[in-house]
Write a protein that binds this DNA or RNA. Structure first.
Lengths: 351, 351
DNA sequence: TTGTAAGCGTTATCAT
DNA sequence: ATGATAACGCTTACAA
């Protein structure tokens, strides 16, 4: 039904081999007489011919495909990571397939299966938790190279941030501001990202000689709604926290709303710190103090490692790549309280 | 190098045809003796065999692939649309390839080319502007079915919202609240989405007997940063607007920050209305009044149309599908000013 | 410089 | 119920 290489060959009066040679002119500098090349090119354009990628990939070892598995496409953090991956992938001639598991085991499994079926050359698994089951052997069968971002693994290469250290820093920052009761809004227990951030939180408190009050740690997922509910619960405690550390920015936004809904102020009544530094966070008012993770860089580093593994002729290196984080101190934590206070009081008389 | 159907056949002591039959047991109820099937299945599992999708697709007419082109993956609106597409795509056995053009013509062109090369069965183009050049003929060559979401087309099916009407409603809402000077933060001129929203804004003002002040219309892209800058410019005008209508929620967030940065209050000094109703908007304080567009439904409807076109045996219908929008009145416009005021004053005495 | 032909890994058609 | 074998559309030795 569609235009094939044979149609072009016939139209140009040459063999299919010649057509193939000029069609791949970019990657292949096989000698073809200019005049012939011209004729073939003309036929290609006239007929609108495009080589069938399936056929082409069939006899090459590579599919040229990279699969990306993210837990939740609606979290603005993941698109940033994806962009980093995407940039270096396309720079290296790979096409990216982006799949969101919604943290559902069945969806994750079916995507992994589909990607393996498609013989992706590489697989990037970003975050997520137990829902993702990826055996080393299943991936090894077809030599698929794998790299994890933000999740641990003994078997595969990983690109990670120091969640524990970053969370400890954030918590210490709050501690340093004089807070002793600091709430922590976690996000499930399945994801190591969160358990690590939680550990950092605990470490900081214990290092400061404090005792961890389990009432101050409340579970969530990663959404605004749950952050809102969690903060509400925290703030209605008999002895509520004076600061809240949320495991991600979206939940921090929810928490910020909860504080306002209770007639309280950030950071005056409740100091707030998030995690991720998604684009919106700088534009909240008060602007959100948060841990900046250079999401795009995570993607870049991961894909760079993948490209090396794919092009490399042996078994993949089990790389352990670390990307630095940075606590971005803005207004929500109260460290710059004077300025924030100033702004707020300016606002009051107006209307 | 990898396990092929022949390896399995040999291991199980059967022909490749038999292996193929049991490997496709799900879609194919060809009779195979249970005992034989068992043996083959065992070999498949033991060897970790997975049929090569390229080879398989090569002799079927369909690729089973759907391409999605979005302008900007970091805008939380698009992932919602993508999820709608994704859901019905996978329910119908299609795999989705998600591509973000970043509004760059070269990126768009190269993605389109790659998707056509891959013989995607369907292509969903979401939003975007001039950067996307898609000729009817290039797509027709391989029978690729196309549907546009939120962008007009004579040639292809479209799923759209009534941008003009929705923007008019939003503006009229502001007008009804007593505002006469209403700023509009646009977002480039290339996207019809924005030109239409702008037209609705203009229509509402003119219908109310007002004159459109070009100074009150300021250009932007779709980001928070630009919304912030645009609002700043608007509010520093000699005769600043008392209300601002932003062409999307991210810019509205930026505008909200700008208002606060000038020591003013939303909605007291400046009423604010956005467009999209992304998840965050309900959790801003004041919560953002915005036009809810049911992004997911857009995706669902588009993909449903695509599935019909792909399965349908003829040329695709040029469908014109409309999805309703709804103005979600929250606090930022001041319509529920009393409550909002109440909350704010509760907040003041606290610390 | 160009053409011929042998695969690539499947599925589908036809025998058996 | 099972097995040969011919495609599918392409690239690439190898021949010419």
């Amino acid at each position: 039904m569609a235009i094939t290489i044979r149609d072009v060959a016939e139209a140009a009066g040459v063999s299919v081999a010649t057509v193939s040679r000029v069609a791949n002119g970019s990657t292949n500098d096989y000698p073809v007489r200019p005049q012939t090349r011209e004729r073939v090119l003309e036929a290609i354009v006239r007929l609108g011919y495009r080589p069938n990628d399936n056929a082409r990939r069939l006899l090459q070892k590579r599919s040229g495909l990279i699969g990306i598995l993210v837990p939740d496409i609606s979290n603005p953090y993941y698109p940033e990571v994806a962009r980093g991956i995407e940039d270096v992938a396309s720079a290296n001639g790979f096409t990216v397939m982006f799949c969101s598991t919604d943290r559902l085991p069945e969806k994750a499994a079916s995507y992994i299966e589909a990607l393996l079926l498609k013989r992706v050359d590489g697989l990037v698994v970003v975050g997520g938790g137990d829902e993702i089951q990826l055996s080393e052997s299943s991936v090894a069968t077809y030599g698929t190279k794998v790299v994890f971002i933000g999740r641990p693994s003994k078997a595969f290469s990983t690109v990670r941030i120091d969640n524990i250290g970053a969370a400890r820093d954030a918590t210490e920052h709050l501690l340093g501001l004089g807070h002793t009761r600091i709430g922590f809004i976690a996000a499930g227990t399945s994801s190591t990202t969160v358990t690590e951030r939680r550990r950092g939180y605990v470490q900081a408190i214990e290092a400061a000689g404090g005792a961890v009050d389990e009432d101050l740690i409340v579970d969530g997922d990663f959404s605004e709604a749950v952050g809102h509910a969690a903060a509400l619960r925290l703030l209605r405690l008999p002895d509520p926290p004076t600061a809240i550390f949320a495991a991600n920015d979206r939940m921090a936004l929810g928490a910020m709303a909860a504080v306002a809904d209770l007639g309280l102020a950030v950071p005056g009544d409740v100091a707030l710190v998030g995690f991720d530094d998604v684009p919106m966070s700088a534009f909240l008012r008060p602007s959100l103090t948060t841990v900046s993770v250079a999401a795009q860089e995570l993607g870049v580093r991961a894909m760079e490692a993948l490209v090396k593994d794919i092009n490399g002729d042996g078994r993949p290196g089990r790389r352990r790549i670390r990307v630095a984080t940075r606590l971005v101190v803005r207004d929500s934590c109260g460290a710059s309280a004077r300025q924030a206070r100033g702004r707020a009081s300016e606002a009051s008389p107006a209307v």
